[in-house]
């Protein structure tokens, strides 16, 4: 997987310093990403052209005000504003491409920790297995001793899916096994009160989807099973008297940080 070398470092940092404080993690990540974003943007963009484009846009805005009594001038200027905005977006997007890819991958990794909450002891959760139609009735779930099935399996032929309700007795990191077609496939389940690295699903193929949503190795190519998913609950973070999805909060905070850093560093965005 990507970011393998930095994963232990990140885990160590998160575990030691910010273990039980998701808000602090979001703030720190937002600040760092805001700074990196601005720096990368500064290096990869045509700063002079962006400044000129922005200045000209501002000039056209002022022209609308200065010549407001002259409708033809206002209309011409409005056309220039639209063209100028297009020019600005063109100039901003290519550097954004450079910037977005590494940042996106970094955020995917952070999402493993902050996107969902681990299971709690005695909290029931679902294990969903998506498989080939011919093996739908040939699946079995094997659990470690600390876990138990709390309801019979439900088959959903329309989705080629089998769902179990499971409960864990105590905290820990477990592997559950799904047997199908004479083979066994495992899936990690984390039961913990702390911020932990979670992988909600294990997938076969689907490279891009794996990058975004899975933190485990791919299921073998010859596996009849397409996906094994565990329904971790999404995490909400309290901030400013509101409950936030961490990504939305990150989006807002990193933008604020970015705008601050761009001023400090004198980078045109």
């Amino acid at each position: 997987m990507l970011f393998v070398p930095i994963r232990p470092l990140m885990a160590d940092f998160l575990n030691r310093v910010l273990l039980d404080n998701p808000l602090a993690i979001v703030v720190v990540v937002s600040l760092v990403v805001g700074l990196l974003m601005v720096l990368l943007f500064g290096y990869t963009s045509n700063q002079k052209a962006i400044k000129v484009a922005k200045d000209q846009l501002k000039a056209h805005l002022l022209a609308v005000r200065l010549y407001q009594d002259q409708l033809p001038v206002v209309m011409r200027t409005y056309g220039r504003i639209v063209r100028g905005t297009g020019r600005y977006i063109r100039l901003a997007f290519m550097p954004l491409l450079y910037v977005i890819i590494p940042i996106t991958l970094l955020i995917v990794q952070v999402d493993r920790y902050l996107g969902s909450m681990p299971m709690q002891p005695a909290q029931p959760f679902l294990v969903k297995v998506q498989t080939a139609p011919d093996t739908l009735n040939d699946l079995s779930l094997q659990l470690p001793a600390e876990m138990a099935i709390s309801a019979p399996a439900v088959h959903v032929p329309a989705d080629n899916e089998v769902v179990w309700r499971v409960v864990a007795e105590k905290a820990g990191t477990y592997n559950i096994d799904v047997a199908a077609g004479g083979q066994t496939f495992s899936k990690q389940v984390v039961v913990s009160p702390d911020v932990s690295r979670l992988s909600p699903t294990r997938l076969r193929d689907r490279f891009w989807e794996r990058i975004f949503v899975s933190g485990e190795p791919a299921l073998p190519d010859n596996s009849p099973i397409q996906a094994i998913a565990v329904t971790y609950l999404p995490r909400n973070i309290n901030f400013a008297w509101l409950e936030w999805n961490w990504i939305v909060l990150f989006f807002v905070l990193s933008m604020v940080a970015g705008f601050v850093f761009k001023e400090v560093l004198g980078i045109e965005i």
Binding site: V33, Y78, V82, T85, A92, F93, P95, F250, A257, F259
Partner: peptide, 21 residues
């Protein structure tokens, strides 16, 4: 939001310009 704040900058700046205009 995976697109990161950079996209936000672009949107905000251009949107703000258009909005004011």
């Amino acid at each position: 939001a995976y697109a990161g704040p950079g996209a936000g900058f672009a949107v905000l700046s251009s949107f703000w310009t258009l909005f004011v205009a």
